[in-house]
């Protein structure tokens, strides 16, 4: 069902702009790279609630206690990048399709404590936690573009992305080891603001701010050797990118 929906969307997107090809239009291709703070959101999962005393994932997993050498487990910091194709019709109307790759590169690991015996007595134990996330997405947006003379273009657009993600976590202590791996896809909302500064009549430097909001349904852990875990992959968050674009026709 989902495959059929995806195929229909992709085919419609290819066909939709066709009537506009004959109109006053300009096209551009570009590439860009940037950052995404906290990809995956709080990376919560059932195991963290049930066994590791955290009801809000990576945010609540941090605990410290005298006698234990803990280190803060920060939300991951992500890098992102991709390629884009965009079209501008009648000077003001804008459509864009892109392909993005995002992954966590820093943070998402450290040491904390948890109560290894949830009943009395209190048995604190050192816990090593690791989180990682990778995402691929194809955002498709339409909107408005404002040319500020021949120097600058600012565009607003909205749409959705076809997004696929992989999320892994691991929790290791003396008495417990749990690993989780989740893969899934969904259609997050995408809002985008892009600014372009033209170096020549066909080449521009760009910066873009995009907001994604959406997550997969609850996924079952694909690692079967330990406690079964459940989690969603959250694509929500802001991304800021910098790049270059080449316009097929002079602006």
């Amino acid at each position: 069902m989902k495959k059929t929906r995806l195929t229909l969307i992709l085919v419609s997107l290819c066909v939709l702009p066709l009537p506009l090809l004959g109109a006053t239009a300009n096209y551009a291709v570009g590439f860009y790279a940037g950052i995404m703070p906290s990809p995956g959101g709080d990376l919560n999962s059932y195991v963290q609630i049930a066994k590791y005393n955290s009801s809000n994932g990576i945010d609540g997993i941090n605990k410290s206690l005298d006698g234990f050498s803990t280190s803060t487990i920060n939300r991951p910091f992500g890098v992102t990048g991709g390629v884009e194709f965009k079209a501008i019709f009648f000077d003001y109307y804008f459509a864009r399709v892109a392909g993005n790759y995002t992954r966590s590169v820093y943070g998402g690991k450290g040491k904390t404590v948890y109560d290894s015996d949830p009943g009395a007595p209190f048995v604190p134990e050192l816990l090593t936690a690791k989180y990682a996330i990778t995402a691929y997405d194809i955002p498709i947006t339409v909107g408005l573009c404002i040319p500020f003379w021949k120097d600058v273009k600012i565009s607003f657009s909205c749409g959705f992305a076809v997004a696929y993600g992989d999320y892994t976590n691991s929790f290791k202590s003396t008495s417990n080891t749990d690993k989780g791996s989740f893969s899934g896809w969904c259609y997050p909302l995408v809002l985008m603001l892009q600014g372009e500064y033209f170096l020549t009549e066909t080449v521009s430097l760009s910066s873009s701010l995009s907001y994604y909001r959406g997550s997969t349904e609850i996924l079952k852990d694909s690692k079967k050797s330990d406690t079964v875990d459940f989690a969603k992959i959250d694509f929500s968050g802001y991304r800021i990118n910098f790049g270059m674009a080449y316009y097929f026709y002079s602006i």
Binding site: G195, L205, S207, L209, I240, F242
Partner: peptide, 17 residues
Amino acid sequence: AGLNFPVQDIGEFYMGG
């Protein structure tokens, strides 16, 4: 750090991370 988009003598628009 980011990009600054000057708009003639009106001002500028900027974005950065």
